[in-house]
Design a protein around this nucleic acid. Structure first.
Lengths: 241, 241
DNA sequence: GATGTAGACAACTCTAATACAAGTGACCCC
DNA sequence: GGGGTCACTTGTATTAGAGTTGTCTACATC
């Protein structure tokens, strides 16, 4: 198979970005050109690829630096946001803020069909910067064996050991509430993305309900609206009264 | 029973494609020609068969590469929020707020590749209540024949009469700006859903750039996230009753 | 007529090399 | 502090060569 040089270089650089933090300045195009033994044009091609991916950015007269934001979430792949971050070379962290068994709020009980739940509230960080407050409700009997330490170290989906089918996610906007504002280090009542996810197992039974709060500007969802059979109309909006 | 050489070669290549990933570049026609001991024309026949099957594609001057997900299909109705509203018995309305040809802002020019654009700002209403401010940028030459009345009565997708392939949509949260707040009749700087959509035609050329501003609380996106077989379900947004 | 070979040319891509414009930051000088 | 200079950076445009696909014609073989 043939190899395209600037793609190779982009791959190599992508690997290096993993090692350095947000805001770090890359060597100049001229230096990289010398190091790789290619022309400046080729280096630029590689860097522009990374720019399109949102990994780096440049200022004329200054240089190329590692871009931090925004964290983009691809909607079509199911899975943890952390997984997506890791694939991009960002180090995810979780801090458990609250962890307790308690009676389910009404709207949660309606979905999960249980009265007693394990509720976990976590703060997610990307490279040390908070980017999401996640609250997960899980039927008490499913979460019985879980410890605070467990949920800090691994995502819920792994811990439960269930065969999951998929999820329904609702995305809206909101003003952040006081507690979350503090955790996310954003001004009070600033705008946030508010997502609610209901995860079901292979039998179709809802097993998890989660709420995600993302500060605006730090997170965006990206959706590919594809060409599909007209029967299953893919795109849509729901109005809420 | 004679064996058709270029079909043999197509079979052989089809097997190899399985091993390499999407986007991989094949050896040049000349190289393959040498390897198989046949002429370039025969290699091309084989490759063109694979292209018809959607397995590979080629760019002049670049080479043959493994195609991702092919299928060019017409997409009759996508992204028309109005259509969904009508199906639910809600009467949609459009008010054109601004309509003019002007130089493209930088970020629009970068996407559309034109310096002059038609910009249309519309207020969408459902049963008389405003629920979205939509701004559409369209290359000036494409929008030349459009009148203010046109865009008031019918969606852009119909008016252009192009074969559209799909769109990439980015969803985020934001604070509403002053003008939009007035239009939507919400308090200043209240949270909104902010969507940006880039629509491409079947050739992959971006032909429209649109921005949607939805007041929080009145609108939500609902998404189905499949876990298995990403090909089975269309990714994207779906209307849920 | 379908299939395969051979060759030629146009159009495009990638990479290199070079040049210049324009922005940034550090330093010096007044 | 203000202003100017200078080295260094990215942004953008050229030119050129080698290599690639796109397309065509001519001819041989089954």
């Amino acid at each position: 198979m043939r190899t395209i040089r600037y793609q190779q270089i982009a791959d190599e650089l992508r690997g290096r970005l993993r090692a350095v933090g947000v805001g770090a300045v890359l060597p100049s195009e001229a230096e990289l050109s010398g190091e790789f033994g290619v022309s400046r044009v080729t280096i630029r091609r590689a860097l522009e690829i990374l720019r399109d991916e949102g990994l780096v950015d440049a200022r004329q007269g200054f240089g190329w630096y590692v871009a931090g934001e925004p964290v983009r979430q691809h909607l079509d792949e199911f899975g943890t946001i952390e997984g997506q971050l890791e694939r991009r070379g960002i180090k995810p962290e979780r801090q458990v803020v609250e962890f307790d068994f308690r009676p389910a709020p009404r709207r949660v009980a309606e979905v999960l069909g249980t009265s007693q739940v394990l509720r976990v509230k976590r703060l997610n960080l990307a490279d040390g910067q908070p980017f999401a407050v996640v609250t997960v409700w899980c039927p008490a009997e499913l979460g019985q064996h879980l410890s605070r330490r467990d949920v800090e170290q691994r995502p819920f989906y792994e811990l439960l050991g269930l065969d999951l089918r998929g999820a329904t996610q609702t995305i809206g906007a909101d003003s952040v509430d006081g507690a979350d504002a503090k955790l996310l280090r954003v001004p009070p009542s600033s705008p946030v993305l508010h997502c609610q996810r209901i995860t079901t197992d292979t039998t179709g039974r809802p097993v998890l309900m989660s709420e995600f709060v993302f500060p605006a500007g730090r997170t965006e969802f990206v959706v590919e609206l594809p060409t599909a059979e007209p029967s299953a109309l893919p795109s849509g909006l729901r109005l809420v009264e």
